[in-house]
Design a protein around this nucleic acid. Structure first.
Lengths: 205, 205
DNA sequence: TGTACATCAGTGAACGCGCGTTCACTGATGTAC
DNA sequence: TGTACATCAGTGAACGCGCGTTCACTGATGTAC
């Protein structure tokens, strides 16, 4: 990583912290450059304007999250050949991952962008939309594999079910923040896991 | 309602629209007073400062949401004496209510406040916290009544389950906004309903 | 190996605009006698 | 019923501060010959 790339990454790091805590508009460039220890004009060397920063934050978020899930589901798949058990293990790993984050899940910039969309230009909104549709496709595949092996106990659309994963995580983050209890997010993920179990797991009785 | 109360309500109405669309900080007082058709100083007659507006928005939101749920669960209770059936009917009514909102659920200011909390003073954060804890208590009672009659198919905490209702709604709103498909929120509520059904409903087989 | 030039990764000062807030004032309505 | 005063619900002009953005410049590193 060159000096320029390092500075750029540092800007994104400190910007993300502030954006998640206060929202995009309330995060001033002045504040970002103070924390990143450069000058204001240094910021504008790396980003054409504030919108370009938003775009870069979302793009990087997509990248990081994709790697995280690849890793998580890959590990889960190693632990079980069965797609249902793999998914259940994956969700448990996800809950543990979130639980172990100091101070709770830092928040999702896709959610902040969703609640501030009239602020951003079409580019940013598109990037945001693509991120969510990417999650949908990923989890849909996961549930399709399960549904090929196990009958469903209730008649629900796999696409809605795929979105349910994202919903519960996003909602769980909002709840954790609102109540001030970081553990809520992982508890909610475990309830999602309970649903998947009841929906697909054959009854032993 | 006196003239002053009408103006105050009009200010809150237009402010809420903007806050949900762009976030609190990005909503200027200038913009609010333009839409409410008063002068800027008229705004400061009704609110001491911008924080007082945030506080009032959250307080009113709690009030409105409480009435909405009282009405909804009351109607559901009229349709069935059984607590489980009542809850399932209530969730279905909720999904329909959200589905019928033109342009989708307008969003939850508790969620925007959750993602911008460092902006607000302790008063506002407390109001926000109380709102969410109120929901928790309400849904917890609902699930306790069900659990007294029906055994649970999976061992989950009723408190977490109560939060799950809020999580799914909040997450569903985020998803609907991010994807740009207003129907997602009600679809997610129907999945929550599916979970409650599988979790409590006795098997017929 | 030295020189000339180009690119990279910034700096420092200045800009104008919009924002939240204040303050002195005002017309309309309500109340006491 | 009329008058005096108080309160309500604002108006209009001005303020200073912080913000995003621009622009001319600069030292360090890379590249060609």
């Amino acid at each position: 990583m060159s000096r320029g790339e390092e500075t750029r990454a540092r800007i994104l790091d400190v910007a993300q912290d502030s954006v998640l805590a206060k929202g995009f508009d309330a995060t001033s460039i002045e504040e970002i450059v103070a924390n990143a220890e450069i000058t204001k004009s240094g910021f504008f060397y790396h980003f054409r304007d504030k919108n370009a920063l938003a775009r870069a934050l979302i793009d990087r978020h997509i990248e990081v999250e994709k790697e995280l899930f690849d890793d998580l589901l890959g590990r889960a798949r190693e632990l079980s050949d069965d797609p249902l058990q793999g998914a259940l293990i994956g969700l448990k790993l996800l809950a543990e991952l979130i639980e172990d984050m100091p101070g709770g899940h830092p928040g999702c910039i896709v959610a902040t962008a969703a609640y501030q969309d009239r602020l951003f230009d079409q580019d940013v909104r598109d990037a945001n939309r693509r991120a969510v549709l990417g999650w949908r496709a990923r989890f849909r595949r996961m549930f399709e594999e399960i549904a090929q092996v196990y009958p469903m106990r209730d008649d629900v659309e796999l696409e809605h079910l795929a979105d349910f994963v994202s919903s519960v995580v996003e909602g769980g983050i909002v709840m954790a923040r609102a109540v001030g209890d970081p553990l809520i997010t992982s508890q909610q993920v475990m309830l999602l896991r309970s649903y998947i179990k009841l929906l697909f797991e054959p009854r032993i009785q």
